[in-house]
Amino acid sequence: MKLSPLRCALLVLAGAAAGFAAPAAHAGKTLDAVRQHGRVVCGVSTGLPGFSAVDSKGNWVGLDTDVCRALAAAVLGDAGKVKWTPLNSQQRFTPLQAGEIDVLSRNTTWTLTRDASMGLHFAAVTYYDGQGFMVAKKSKVTNVKQLKGAEICVQSGTTTEKNLTDYFRAQGMKAKPVVFESYEASLKAFFSGRCQAYTTDVSSLAAIRDKEVKNPDDYAILPELISKEPLGPAVRRGDDEWFAIVKWVVYALIEAEELGVTQANAESLKRSANPAVQRLLGGAEDMGRLLGLDKEWAYRAIRAVGNYGEIFDRNLGANSPLKLPRGSNQLWTKGGLMYAPPIR
């Protein structure tokens, strides 16, 4: 058959029509897709110690990565079945909107704009943070008020940029933000002395001070927090089933801490006399079914990464190089904000 130009054109047309008819990929299908591909695609940062960073052996570690691992364990039965997609601050939302990642677990602040107008849903809070400032000690700055007129390095695409403005405006002070589009560039500029202060979430500041600086004592993190930064995983809009799974996996980890269930004792506690523990670990009632999962979903998640307290201590707290205090991230029963709705 000779392919006349006309026929070619018709073929192209048919192709276009087929593309047209192809169903838009979203809504309600995430769990199926995850099961089918046998992996959770998890968006993480490009490298922020304590939250998501590659360790010396090439493994992703950190609080945000453990959320993804728990998710993979709950859904697929294997915490290792995660595909990591590193994303910088600016490009983190597009892949989620476009369905290239299943969950964005990357020190991302829950705000109304993001929740309501950017095609995503925040599932839970995994870390209550606040924005702070880091300065070189030799500048003798000890509180934010002294930063009047200062040049402040900040990464674009963050809530940080706007908080900075709000705070300084509220205080009637002027700040000159120096905005960089990449994390690396912003760090480089600050450490070269271009700015008198660097600002982002204080947990990140602690991580930066610990890892990126020759002598951490040369830098100070100012005492003031200027914003609320509730960080947590987000999922795509329009898939309530998957949204519920991510939300409840996080809550299961918090509930486990409340109930004293740990990575080590989860196995033996399966036969616990406490009905709440039983429900969590799938000893008797099948709570997983309601989520479209099986009975042992939470058990597997806890076995994989431990309860929330363990995750915190390992990555950010006492057992980590950062040694951050639990602070607001303590359980509500101990004066903190971590509170899981009941699993029942």
């Binding site: 276009a16 979203h26 309501a116 095609g119």
Partner: peptide, 16 residues
């Protein structure tokens, strides 16, 4: 097609 698709996707995904 592209315009329709973008518009549809934005709306379906709840993007303003």
């Amino acid at each position: 097609w592209v315009a329709g698709r973008v518009e549809g996707e934005l709306a379906a995904r709840g993007i303003r």
